[in-house]
Structure formats: structure tokens, C-alpha cells
Design a protein around this nucleic acid. Structure first.
Lengths: 217, 217
DNA sequence: CCGAATCTCCACCCTTCGATGGAGAATTTT
DNA sequence: AAAATTCTCCATCGAAGGGTGGAGATTCGG
């Protein structure tokens, strides 16, 4: 494998430092060229159209449009587009949704340069590359039922520390109904009480940690 | 301010990509030179001794030795050392401990290049630089009591979703005692039930999210 | 159009949790 | 060494949470 074509890469990542790091790392690599950068989801789509990269490195959490949405939209017009998802924390939901949306690989930001480069090459070659630890977690997720919209509402309230009575008031339903939803979502999450539900929701990224900031002073 | 001496900077950060990004960003800045890099806490101390930087950029979460410990140790032998703390997520505890330990400034990884450069200059000039949002949170923290070791044990168990009975067994105390500790820590955290305690603990970084991975299959 | 599946809702019982009040041991202050 | 503070421990009681079973409403495929 001596003379092969250069892989065109687009870097979509809102953290300046990380984006610069990726660009700097890839600049010294033979056969890979960063042809575009984007700092949010909307920009990512625009840059994709303009640069026509072979592989797109994309952060899941970005302003304006999430990484998952970007992947979905781009794949509607360019189904063969290849994505490598970047994220700091490996929450279950993010992995699942991104891979569902068509991402071929998943990298944590703590990766090594070798990880990065070999993953780009692998994905460009049309193959997928899922780390064992993540593949396992993904497998565990199979068979896990989805939460209904209402159950999700209740879970969100639980994570925010509300009592059943408060939840009932907030959602304008009876307390008994709240309990039913809770019972149902406890089963689906595979936990036995509301505290476990709350930590599971945070850990899996079902309810974002940022939403916890005290909104009632 | 035309001709001023070059600021010598040490970058201590375990994420390769981020470290590379910082170095790349600073490389093009006049008057700032990266004189060393470190990928964990132990290395950070060694590099500090070797490079004698004016300012050290340091991540709080690092292998082997945490950023806070590194700051404490270095300041024992070099009290005038200046630190800028880096972190992805602005948890209360991290901020508090790092500033207690002697850090002069606090930067989120989503910062701009201007933020980075001006903060380095400010800190090198001997001043502190705390973002308003963080200063406010820090102020709120004043008057907040510390958790006792035992209360911390109980809180950790709560976050892991254990019932009072399970906690009693795990810590080898009576269930009634568990309740006392809970009552006490609820007050100190400013919350009203265990679920709020759990989310607060995670959000403030008192109990790390990583510790939630199922450890008993 | 009708059954099947699913979402949403509710009432009852029992367990667990949180509040309160208080006592002995350990640490620090004076 | 005595006093004061703080940590640790415990029992009882009302309130909140979770388990169970079932009913009306909605959506979907045959």
C-alpha cells in the first residue's frame, strides 16, 4: 500500500481547543488532509456540501444542531457519507442514536493519535470500527424497550428531584398515574427505585446533566 | 507594552487531542511559549521541576495524580507557582478545591483562543481571573458545610442506588444510623430527598459519574 | 371494521424513607 | 483537665414511594 489517494476529512467540533488539536494531529499524517472545519451543526452541513469529505469527524453535542441530526440530514442527500463520532463521555443513548443514524465509528476524546488515524483509515475503507467496550454496551441495549413520551416526562421530573405529588401537578395528572408511569419506566430501565432511575438517566445521557442547574431561585 | 519577556507555559492534560490543541493554539501566539507537556499528574510535577514554567495549564482529572494534588504538591516547594485549571465540566467541587489549592484561574475547554491567551497573560501578571458564572457559584458555596467522611460514604451508596437497608449492611451499621447520616447530608447539600442528593452529588462532582458503571454482575 | 397492541389513567396495600429528639465517644479549645 | 464542639450512633412515627391489578382511549394492520 504505497501510493493511495488522500483521505479528505471534515472536522465538526464546537470546542476550539479540541478542533485545533484534531487538525494539528492530522496535519502531520501522510494520506489524510483536513479539508474543512465546523464549529456547530449548521456549519457542519454547509461545510460538508462545500468540501465533500470522505470522512467526517463529528461531535455529538454541538450548538444549533446536534451531531445526530447532522448525520441524519447529510445522509438523506448523501447516503454513502462516512462519519466518526467524537464524544467526551460514552453515554449509552448517544452511542445508540449516532450508530442508528449511520455513524461507522465512535471515538472518545481520550484516544491516541494511532486510534484516530487507524479509525479514519478503517472507516474510509468502508468498514466499521466500534470499540469492544462500546459494542458490548450496545449489545446489552438490544431488547431494551423505549420509554414512552409520557414516561420520559416523568423521568425528567424524577431526575430534577421532584416528588410524585409535584410531578402530578406539573404534568397535570393524578399522583396514582405518576406512579404507574414510574413503575413502567423502572422496569424498562432495569432499575428498582427512582434514585437508580435518576442516575441511570444521567449516566446514559437520557437526561442531560446541564438541565440540572437550579432554574428556580 | 512592546517588548516584554516570553511567558513560559507548561501544559498538563491527559487527553492527547486537547493537549495538542492547546499547544497548536499557543504556538502561533507572540510572547507565549510552551516549554513542556505532561499527560498525567506525576509527569506534570516532573515537568514542572524541569521546565520551571511561569504558568501551568492543568486538567483536574488526570491519571495517577489529580490536578488538585499536583497543585498542592508543587505549591509546597514553589508557592509562587501560577496555575490555570482546565476542565470540561464545571462541577462545583472541582472549582472549589482547585482554587483552594491555589489555582488563579479556571477555564472550560469550550473557551476561545482569546480567553486562553488573555487568561494566561492575566495570571502571569499575578492577577486572578474567575469567570462571573463560576464566581457566583463559588460564592454560593460559602457557608456550605463539608460532609463528614461517614456522610460521604452514605452519599456514595445513595448515588449507587442502594436502599437504606443495603447501606446499613454495606457500612455495617444500623439502618437508623444510616437515616441520621442521610438527614444530615440532605441538609448540608441543601436538598430534601435522596434522589436530589444523588443528582446533586453527580452534578457537583462529589461522586464521579464513572463510578456508576455496574460493578456487580 | 375489528381485534391487537400500546399508551394513559386510577385505587388499594405494604414497604421504605425522612423528620425528630436524644445519648455516648472523639477531637479540639481554653 | 474541663468545656465545647463535632462526629457517630440509635428508636419511634407520619409521609412518601413502589407493587399489583385492572379499565378506558388510541393507533395500527388485517
Amino acid at each position: 500500500m504505497a501510493a493511495q489517494e488522500t483521505i479528505r476529512v471534515l472536522v465538526a467540533e464546537d470546542h476550539h481547543v479540541v478542533r485545533q488539536g484534531l487538525v494539528a494531529l492530522l496535519k502531520v499524517v501522510q494520506g489524510i488532509e483536513v479539508v474543512g472545519e465546523a464549529a456547530d451543526g449548521v456549519e457542519a452541513i454547509a461545510q460538508f456540501r462545500k468540501c465533500q469529505p470522505n470522512v467526517t469527524l463529528i461531535d455529538l453535542r454541538m450548538p444549533r444542531l446536534s451531531g445526530v441530526e447532522v448525520i441524519q440530514r447529510i445522509r438523506m442527500e448523501t447516503p454513502q457519507a462516512r462519519f466518526i463520532v467524537l464524544t467526551t463521555y460514552d453515554g449509552d443513548e448517544d452511542i445508540y442514536r449516532a450508530l442508528q443514524a449511520g455513524a461507522r465509528a465512535y471515538l472518545l476524546k481520550g484516544m491516541t493519535t494511532d486510534d484516530l488515524v487507524s479509525t479514519i483509515r478503517t472507516v474510509h475503507a468502508g468498514k466499521s470500527h466500534i470499540p469492544p467496550a462500546i459494542a458490548q454496551r450496545l449489545a446489552e441495549r438490544v431488547g431494551t424497550e423505549e420509554l414512552t413520551p409520557r414516561e420520559f416526562d416523568v423521568l425528567e421530573q424524577i431526575v430534577h428531584g421532584h416528588s410524585n405529588k409535584e410531578i402530578a401537578t406539573a404534568l397535570d395528572i393524578s399522583e396514582a398515574t405518576v406512579k404507574t408511569h414510574i413503575n413502567s419506566l423502572l422496569g424498562k430501565l432495569g432499575v428498582t427505585d427512582r434514585t437508580q432511575a435518576a442516575t441511570a438517566a444521567i449516566q446514559r445521557g437520557i437526561v442531560p446533566l446541564e438541565s440540572l442547574r437550579k432554574p428556580k431561585p
